[in-house]
Design a protein around this nucleic acid. Structure first.
Lengths: 96, 96, 96, 96
DNA sequence: ATCCATACAATCTCTC
DNA sequence: GAGAGATTGTATGGAT
């Protein structure tokens, strides 16, 4: 088998093989985007349902956002602590 | 307990029942948001994989966007055609 | 004065006047973008300065981000409380 | 107090001095970030104003982006020319 | 020098 | 339809 041809299909996407790969990637991505859209619609439906039960959608959204921010902040704090610990460890090593 | 009062908890969210409902809505929404995030990450992974195969991610994104827009346009056209057909059918009926 | 011409310059941006307006908008925006860039550079300089004084830039960034999140969360909470108050007020009105 | 110790507080951030420095850095950075945000909002306001005058914001953004890219390209070209000139000058010197 | 992460900008969607 | 809010795509900057 010609070496050049083989290399080409493996490294730079050229030729039929590349075309097949491309199609495969596109297909997979578009499939997942459909899934994502479906999930988004499910979320929207729940908000509509909540509204039908008398809840204020605006407030509900805020509550959920607030919960997300709380989680985020906690994660940030954990990361900060980790960073501090790394810094202290480095400092200790330096002092040895 | 009067039946009317019980019904009310289903229509206007007040009291323990409302609280339970609220929790349920939040739980369901947050669950779906996780799903959505997971799907987004899967999509990102595919782009990364494509990149590893030598594709230009930026261009690939453009291609997929184009396809989406084309699909949208086609759907809109189909709907328009359907509308025309309905109009023609109505017109024919009127003329009978 | 011809009425048509006057209307045109006021409602749809066409003609010399529009051109002058456009230039003015572009000039103002580009001026502000320069300002913004300058501020960004000032911020970067401070980080560099802090680094020179022995601070860990990564940690410093995290600290600032954490503070920003704290502020954001507080704002979200305030907005939520406001929303609650609006909802209660509406409810009261309904009951009158 | 030994002079060396005092110096140290300027080089490695430890102790009260470091704390004061840290606070100062944070304060300055947060101040500038506020400025930056204000400028961003000013820019947004101008776009809104332009919209009110009948301009298409999306297109206006594209125009400004184009101008920025053009400027960048021109600057890069100037730098390149400068490089050439330096090279030629060196060459001339060598030939003397 | 490249890769990754964060941050900024822009577009698009949903609500009122 | 305007306005905010969410999401996505791009670009800059930092780390290795």
């Amino acid at each position: 088998m010609p070496k050049a041809a083989k290399q080409e299909t493996d490294i730079i996407p050229v030729g039929d093989n590349a075309n097949a790969h491309l199609k495969s990637f596109i297909k997979r991505i578009e499939r997942l985007e459909e899934d994502k859209k479906a999930v988004s619609e499910d979320i929207k439906d729940i908000y509509t349902e909540a509204k039908g039960t008398g809840f204020d959608v605006k407030i509900l959204r805020k509550v959920i956002k607030r919960r997300r921010l709380t989680r985020q902040k906690r994660e940030e704090e954990d990361q900060l602590i980790e960073l501090y610990e790394c810094a202290i460890a480095s400092f200790k090593e330096m002092m040895e």
